[in-house]
Design a binder for these strands. Structure first.
Lengths: 146, 146
DNA sequence: GTATATGCAAAGTATTTGCATTAGG
DNA sequence: CCTAATGCAAATACTTTGCATATAC
């Protein structure tokens, strides 16, 4: 992994008065050891296999720290439960989801709809109904974060 | 709720040799009593409040049944854990996610990117990095389903 | 009557938290 | 030193499952 990235991480730790611990550095390196998607337990087991064991709790806590400081993104929504909606009573639409508070806004857009079909076709993907989500921050959460 | 929808549900039950039980009908009506998003426990508690109690297990089982038969969609991905990816080593991109096997394909698209920004602006939403997901079925899963 | 559906409680999975101990600055 | 970070185990949140009982067909 890129040397400067590690330095950038160390800087962030210093600047925010957080301690530069072996566990944090190891987790950071593990996260940046490939560009694949991963989940918390994957990191935990990978490190354990490589005899660089840290506790599960520390993995979870450090990943949160990395997300808060922009080194890692959450690929799916904050809401931990599965959300449903009834299908047949509704028009086709897409969703905006606030990753912080879970707020959902529905919208329809012809351009997105068309382009979405093109992209799916190109990648041998078959879109289902209600199938596109844009994650972001809603107005309120963004203001709260100032 | 629409009378024909309930009939359609009953038909589906018959056609697939599933029993038309009070619990299933009540859950179906509850699901179609509004067009809002919901999660399993919400249905469970709403019904309990309305003295139409069914067990949690039945709510979960019936929601699965409704999803399989197209009466309900899962709004977020099948994967139960939170997925992450490192941010700084990568170009901006979007994701295709297979709701059946969890496969993730990354893509970039200028049209989607631009339109996404327009839509976010319109709804006072602030897109974050790696923020759009199109859910669907990958080639393999679609073929497996025949 | 018989197979399927239900309810309950227990198990499972992913994640978070409290607290005593350790260690970075 | 002193505060923040760690590890552990227990707690939590959501969901699934095994099994005995009930019920639709």
């Amino acid at each position: 992994m890129d040397k400067t990235l590690l330095e950038k991480f160390k800087d962030t730790l210093h600047t925010n008065g957080m301690k530069c611990t072996p566990a944090r550095l190891l987790i950071f390196k593990e996260v940046y050891s490939s560009s694949e998607h991963f989940d918390a337990d994957e990191i935990y087991f990978r490190m354990r296999r490589e005899k660089k064991a840290v506790s599960r709790a520390t993995v979870y806590r450090t990943l949160d720290l990395l997300v808060e400081n922009g080194f890692v993104s959450r690929v799916n929504v904050g809401a931990s439960q599965v959300h449903f909606e009834n299908t047949l009573a509704q028009e086709h639409h897409e969703h905006l989801v606030c990753t912080q508070c879970g707020k959902i806004i529905e919208f329809s857009d012809k351009v997105i709809e068309k382009q979405q079909n093109l992209i799916c076709e190109e990648h041998d993907f078959f879109p289902t109904k209600h199938n596109l989500i844009i994650f972001g921050l809603c107005d309120k959460c963004r203001k709260r974060n100032n």
